[in-house]
Amino acid sequence: MYDVSYHRPASLADAKAMLASDDAKVLAGGQTLLPTMKQHLAAPSDLVDVRRIPGMSGVKVEGGKLVIGAATTHAEVAGNADVLKHVPSLACLAAGIGDPAVRHMGTIGGSIANNDPAADYPSAILALNATVVTDRREIAADDYFQGMFTTALEPGEIITAVKITPPKSGGYAKFPNPASRYAMVGVYVAQTGAGVRVAVTGAGQDGVFRHDGLEAALSARFAPEAVDGVSVSADGLLSDIHGDAAYRAHLVKVMAKRAVAAAA
């Protein structure tokens, strides 16, 4: 790994100041960033570790919403009593990310900042109509994800939390890549105040996306069989060594059914 300077700011204000240089990057769990640096695909001059900034991790319920600090680990989300009570499907998603050691380090903020097209969390954030809270604003999920590895975040912008209004019910099902455990296809369904929302990860060439046809069918009837009549096009889906677009299109329907069946 190239040389890098490590910083551990004590406050968000200090972190912002340290991120003023273009070559500085936020470090959270490091489960994506450190492997990327080892491969020389990223070479930041400075790493600004946000994990120990007060208020950056932990879960609370505020005004009926679940507020999850950006530096909360996947293991903490999976085991948190408030998450299990209000959005059990999210706890279930977190429990299925990678492996135990990755879940002990990786964070929700890091996952959605990275917006890997095969990551699990983006589907939850989008389906649950969550709000991404940063050091300077609040961003609606529909505006946040902007294509593979691309988000609405500005240079130096720090995610501080994610806010979720508990849905009436939600469910997540993924077909994990047998080697990496990332999603070949993952589908999150949620009955929200704004209707049924369905988000698909792992499949799209432009990263996570909502599926209109599935949303319409499941709004009419929230049952696994409602998925049968929906056509899922392979256009715009990924084809790679793991599976072609037609296979992924098929998996979208299968995972959607399983997600509805699991919804709680």
């Binding site: 490590y6 551990r8 470090l27 490091g30 450190l34 492997p35 080892k38 492996d99 135990p100 380090m105």
Partner: peptide, 29 residues
Amino acid sequence: CDTSQCGACVVHVDGRAIKSCTALAASLD
């Protein structure tokens, strides 16, 4: 592997198993 995949490097940090090849020592002061 040194690529976060194999788990040969797992140790316990503050009671939790992590991959030691995927953590900076400086962050664990």
